[in-house]
């Protein structure tokens, strides 16, 4: 009985000591929600018009320097590409013909690849690309020494929001996901990385070179195969006078 009393006494004492000690804690939970953000700011006219109404414009083509400026901000690694698109498959949409047909050899099916692009700066991440040209950074070839396909816009009759194959051109980044940073531009922003010359700021020039007769000799695939009208439709073919339109989409996508 004495032992029990002693034990109870010690227990009471230890309880008393425990309550006398100052120790307490409070908690806060911190949650961080990192949502993927990809922003492409584009400075460009709503429509870029190429009006060929003088012979020298057919010979020398029309260039639109700096017509489009692309500024990227992204919280994730990304790729950027341009894709030519129309309602007419891989050809421009003819809105209007200016003559009754222009003769049996005139063609109103103009390949999308006749539109040429030039970008600055060059694609900074090209690992995995295998085309003849990896981007649009090669200067336009002179009108008297064109290189078919060198600057031709990538185009597709399918889903334009599926990234081009590794054999096609990218403005920045590359097809697929390799990892290690070589095939995509790291997340960042032109706001902090600087403007012209950084990986987040691109200036695009446009050229259309009809030639005379108007066969668009610079049109071609990224493998270098010509897509001028003679190659596509046979000798003596040329473009039917009229109004044509096409759409160029600039697609910024997460590299994954």
């Amino acid at each position: 009985m004495k032992k029990l009393g002693l034990i109870l006494g010690i227990g009471a004492l230890s309880t008393s000591l425990s309550y006398a000690q100052l120790v307490d804690e409070k908690n806060v939970t911190v949650t961080m929600d990192l949502q993927p953000v990809l922003q492409l700011n584009m400075t460009t006219p709503d429509q870029i018009a190429f009006v060929f109404d003088e012979i020298r414009e057919y010979y020398g083509g029309i260039l639109k320097y700096g017509a489009t400026i692309l500024k990227v901000s992204s919280s994730v690694s990304w790729d950027l590409y341009a894709v030519g698109h129309s309602q007419n498959g891989t050809f421009w949409d003819q809105q209007m013909a200016y003559s009754t047909g222009g003769g049996p050899n005139s063609k109103n099916t103009l390949p999308l690849s006749l539109l040429e692009l030039h970008q600055y700066p060059a694609n900074p991440r090209t690992n995995g690309l295998s085309g003849t040209w990896l981007d649009y950074s090669t200067p336009f070839a002179p009108a008297n020494a064109v290189v078919p396909g060198q600057n031709s816009v990538y185009y597709t009759a399918g889903n334009p929001y599926v990234g081009p194959a590794a054999t096609e051109k990218y403005i920045a980044g590359a097809a697929g996901f390799i990892g290690g940073g070589g095939d995509a531009v790291d997340g960042g922003s032109f706001l902090t990385a600087g403007s012209l010359g950084s990986n987040y700021y691109y200036v695009l020039d446009y050229r259309i070179l009809p030639g005379l007769p108007a066969i668009f000799p610079a049109a071609g695939t990224n493998a270098g195969a010509p897509e001028d009208l003679v190659t596509l439709f046979g000798a003596n073919s040329y473009a039917q006078p009229g109004v044509y339109t096409m759409n160029v989409k600039y697609v910024l996508m997460e590299d994954q």
Binding site: V23, E25, N27, V28, T29, D33, L34, Q35, G187
Partner: peptide, 19 residues
């Protein structure tokens, strides 16, 4: 956060201890 983090939702807890 900068621009190098993987998108997602993350959590930590901060305890304040008075001793």
């Amino acid at each position: 956060p900068g621009f190098a983090l993987r998108p997602g939702s993350y959590q930590i807890r901060i305890r304040f201890c008075l001793v």
